[in-house]
Structure formats: structure tokens, C-alpha cells
Design a protein around this nucleic acid. Sequence first.
DNA 1: TCTGGGGTCCTAGGACCC
DNA 2: TCTGGGGTCCTAGGACCC
Length: 471
Amino acid sequence: MRTILHIDFNSYFATVEQQANPRLRGKPVGVTGGDRFKRTVLGAASVEAKKFGVKTGMRIPEALKLCPRLILVKGDSYKYLESTKRFLNILKDYSPYVEVFSIDEVFLELRNFSWGPVRSQPQKCPRSLPFAAGSFWGAPLPATPAKNYPLSPLETALDIKRRISEEVGEWVKCSIGISYNRRMAKLAGSLYKPDGLVVIADEEGARFILDRVELDEICGIGFAIKKRLNNMGVFSFKDLRKVPLEALLASFKSYGKVLFDLSRGIDETSVLPFYEKEEVKSVGHRYTIDHDTKDLAEIKQVLLKLVELIAKRLRTKKLVGKTVSIWVRNAFKPHLRGEVIAKPVAHLGGEFAHPRGELGGGGFQGAGMQATIAFTDSGMEIFNGAWKSFLKIWDGSEIRMVGVSVSNLKPKNPENLTFLEDKLRIEKLTKIMDEVNNRYGDFTLQRGVLLGSRKVKRMPNPFLADYRFKI
DNA sequence: TCTGGGGTCCTAGGACCC
DNA sequence: TCTGGGGTCCTAGGACCC
């Protein structure tokens, strides 16, 4: 049996802000994406703000309505990244098997460790009783340390909490879940926040917990799949276990097996250490303009900026890509709110308008298109592909968001360089631009066509997107 | 007055090649 | 003129995650 810890930092951006600024401690804090308070959502909410019902992803006016004294802080990705680096360095001391799941979530596997004979002993219900560090479901973990580790899993978790408090900051709390697979460890970690420590020791313990949580509380079941399960008469994991595998496969194709296993606490996926993770598969940015527009010149400028950011990231990673994707999201249409918009998905069968409108749905409509171009890391070449696609999908109506992404990436091979003088000149110029912009900030040097783009103030911070590779 | 932005994965169906 | 099958690439678009 495996031993996997899931470490999740609570209200991450908000607690890092509170750590950095003691005046924010103990107060409801919301971290915003940037300067804009309109047309954006909260990136994080502090523990205190959450008590008012404020949540990550909430619109700002809505959050202020719930909590008028909410302190809005502009997010600082560099700060969060520094903090992430620090806790990852701590975790590496406990095991080499550290999977970076997101900027504030990590899986850590302790190997060569035997749980010994386990017997399930459900102890407390997660919803009715808060519990202190060390509470668990299922059999107690053996106290005997593993061969290669000086501490037992439980002691390891407690030691990690102690060191994070000492070395990252006392205000930065994490919840740790311990279990025999990734999904159950993640579920365990989510049961008690903040500063929780929960063990799900075996499948019997897993069933005990699964029977007491909602379907979408587990990683892998979201809005649409939950809705479809409900339509099949499945409202709990207990119900889900009664559905034969064949029926799930018929409805959800290969994902049916995942659901079948999930309901039984089974998950064979392994912890993938960060140094074994493949390079990125796509690099992209999207941007919501702070007003709806059908001004072609303005849209073009937004796209040019996005494309330059993407191209710069590709060059930093020494990658070239050949697939350019573009999406637009149309202006909000109140009458479409709640409408069924999604088209059937090949492998899952879409039926529902997403409440948040991932692209379409929830009052939004959108369109996207892909195009194949020659492998490139040049902003202009990406732009040319994107612009052609844009003109094809754009129906002339007002848009609120535009996004570009480059995928089908491969390492840039220096031998492939063309010796055309023109190409070399462009590469040289691009290199100089990157050097200057790295030193003085993005868009210090920019193409003439971007000059005068006053309306587009804030652009994505590409730094945050690359956290995984800077550790 | 109305919801951001960074990703990953999956599958169908057609085009195209041998 | 009619005919098969396998493999791979391209494209569309949704669902999921944080």
C-alpha cells in the first residue's frame, strides 16, 4: 500500500499577503487579479473573509455585498512564487517524490513504507465534528518509522506543518491529507480547513467518508458530470456504487471506469515528481477587455500584446509551436443565462450551460478555432495565424474576451535555423527586445503597431504561469 | 451593473498517405 | 472502374483542475 500526503495551502494568496503585512492579519482580505475591480473575480479570500461567504472566484461587487469591510489587495505573483519555492524546498527534505499539482498544492509520496495490517475504525463524522490535528478515519497508522524515513507519516505531516510555520511564516497554514492514493489524500486534506490533518487509511475508511460528502467534492467530478449523474438518479457515492460498470461506460465512455473506481476509493494514478513532469504542452494567454468592443483596431492590439507575451515565454523555454488556437467570448447576454448551450462532447456528452461559462454557457457565447502554422517562436508569425482564424470566427458582434494559445510544442533546434538574412535580423532584434524587456519590464520595447494602445492597461503576468519551471 | 486566467485531457470525424 | 484497411495528422469543442 502506498503512502501519499496531499499538502494544500489554505487561502494561499490571501495568507501570503497577511504574512507579508501584519496589518491584514485577522481581517477579511480578498486578493484581486490586478487593478481592475470591474469584470474580474477574486483570486483568493482570507479565512476571515470566507466566514462571510466570500469565495475564490467570486465577482468583486458580490463579495463586497457579503462583506462590506473586505480589504481588497492587488495580487503579487512574485511574492506567492517566492513562498512556493520555500515550501517546496522544505518538502524535498522528506521525499524526492514531490508532485507540484498547482501553485499551492503538492502531493508527496513516502515510499518503502509498510502500513502493516490495517483495520478500519471510523471515528468521527467530518461534517458534524471539527477535529484537531491527528484525527483520522480508518486504522491508525503504524507508529513505526519506515526504513528510509526517520518519521512515521503522521509525524512527517506534523513536522512539515512545524517547519512551514517556522520557515515560510506562521500565518501561512496548510491542510494535509494522508491516504493510500492521490484522490483520497486530496479528499482527506479538504475535509478540515484550515490547518487540518486527516488520514483516510483504507478503502473502508474511504467509503465512510465518501458516503458523507457531495459528488463534486472529489477531484474529477465537476458541475456537468454531477448534473449528468443526478439525471441518472445518482446523488451520492453510495448511489454511484450501485451503478454497474457497463452502465457507466455506456454513459461516460472510458471516464465511466474512473467514476466506478472513484466511488470505491480506488485511484491507481501515481505521484509524478516535478523533475519527471513533461514540459508544458501549451502556452497561452487570454484577456478580458474592460468594456465590450467591436473595434477591430483595438482587438488587434490586444491580440498583438498577447502574442508577444506568448512568444517571449516560448523563447525563454526554447520551444517552438505549430498549432495556434484562438477564442473569443462575446458580450454577456442576460437572456442566455441558464440556457443549455454546450454541445455534446465526444467523450462525455455535454448538456449543460456551465454556471461560470468556461467559454460558452452562463450567459456567454464564444467561439474558437485552431490553425496549423510552421513551427515558430515569433510573435508576428503566431499573430498571423491567430488573426486569420479570428476573422473567420468573428461574427462582427461585440466581444469581451480574446485568448490565444500555442500548442504542439517541441524544443527549438538550433540546426533548424534558416540562414536567410532577414530571419537572422529578426531573431537578433527579438533577442535584444527580450533582453531589454526582461530588465525593464514587458513592453518597454515594443512594436510600433502597439504604440498608443492606451485602452489596454493591464495584461497577464506571464511570470505566474511559469511557476512550475522556475522552482 | 452581470463571471478571470493559467492549464490538462479526451474523442470524433474527416483528410491524407501508403 | 471499383475496391480495403491501417496509421497519422488536423480540427472542433467540452469537461475538468486550481
